[in-house]
Amino acid sequence: MEQFQGRVWLLGDNLDTDVICPGRLLDAPIEEIAEHALESVRPEFRAEVRPGDVIVAGGNFGCGSSREQAPQVLKAMGISCVVAESFGRIFFRSAIAIGLPVLACKDVAGAFADGDTASIDVEKASVTNVAGGAVMSGERLSPEMLEIITRGGILELLKEKTGGAQ
């Protein structure tokens, strides 16, 4: 799997899916949700996020609702990878299912300042602050999870396994 190097958006603990994607927008297209993603904690996110940026966050990232629009909108806005100290399990699962790389890494939030550059190897579960600092080791994803992400999501994998339409 490719490695990611990108500018860091540093976010705190318990960032829930209502903050990533407000509930009132759950009948809106992804482009409209993107106008409001993370606005209550980072109002400048929409205007300043660039393709390839990464999110580095504290514990329990993506807790709360099962709304898949949360990982979807981050992926659509160009976030290449989310590294957090821990994840809400439904967000974690959905990110894998849609092919958005995620990595749990203890104490990672303390190793970055907002705007730093992170280098991430999802397969090896390593995270480095390019400006200096040790290589941090996260929790390795299982081979099954890595395969889903590599194929770009569980649908692609299922299509391949079943030969598509039956």
Binding site: P71, I90, A97, L155
Partner: peptide, 29 residues
């Protein structure tokens, strides 16, 4: 269920858990 509160049904002795839409769409098939 594609709803995080699917876990409600554990009150009746079921294993019930929430997932995202893609996992649930795949399971529908």
């Amino acid at each position: 269920g594609a709803d995080s509160h699917t876990c409600t049904y554990g009150a009746l002795g079921a294993f019930a858990t929430g997932m995202g839409s893609t996992d649930v769409g795949a399971a529908m098939a």
